Simulated assay, not measured.
Amino acid sequence: MEMSELSDSMKQKIRAEYEGYGGSPDKPLQTNYFLNIMIVIAVLAILTSLLGN
């Protein structure tokens, strides 16, 4: 399967979304928000299962 280049309009949309999450063109995001959310949900699930009995 061949990888195709992104169109200019798609690149602009991705940049706008990236900047909306707090990114800038010069540096990467400081933290991975999705990973942090998954960790919080996992901790809550574990606590619920331990305290739910």
Rank of each mutant, 00 (worst) to 15 (best):
M1V: 08
M1H: 08
M1N: 09
M1K: 10
M1Q: 07
E2D: 07
E2H: 06
E2R: 10
S4M: 14
E5D: 10
E5S: 09
E5W: 12
L6A: 11
L6V: 06
L6Q: 08
L6E: 05
S7V: 03
S7G: 08
D8C: 05
D8P: 00
D8R: 09
D8W: 03
S9D: 08
S9G: 02
M10A: 09
Q12E: 15
Q12M: 10
K13C: 01
I14K: 02
R15H: 02
R15T: 04
R15M: 12
A16D: 11
A16Q: 02
A16N: 08
E17D: 15
E17K: 04
E17V: 07
E17H: 07
E17R: 06
E19F: 06
E19N: 02
E19I: 04
G20K: 06
G20S: 04
Y21R: 11
Y21F: 09
G22L: 02
G22A: 02
G22F: 00
G23F: 01
S24M: 05
S24Q: 06
P25A: 06
P25K: 12
D26G: 05
D26E: 13
D26I: 02
D26T: 09
D26H: 02
D26Y: 05
K27V: 00
K27H: 04
K27A: 10
P28I: 02
P28S: 04
P28N: 07
L29G: 03
L29V: 03
L29S: 05
Q30V: 09
Q30W: 05
Q30T: 14
T31H: 11
T31N: 08
Y33T: 12
Y33H: 13
F34W: 08
L35R: 03
L35G: 00
L35W: 01
N36K: 01
N36P: 02
I37H: 03
I37T: 09
M38A: 15
M38R: 15
M38Y: 10
I39W: 00
I39G: 01
I39N: 00
V40N: 05
I41F: 11
I41R: 12
I41S: 10
A42E: 10
A42Y: 07
V43A: 06
V43T: 05
L44E: 08
L44C: 10
L44K: 08
A45M: 14
I46K: 14
I46N: 09
I46F: 12
L47M: 15
T48K: 15
T48V: 14
T48P: 07
T48A: 13
T48D: 08
T48N: 13
T48W: 12
L50Y: 09
L51R: 12
G52E: 14
G52W: 15
G52H: 11
N53A: 14
N53L: 13
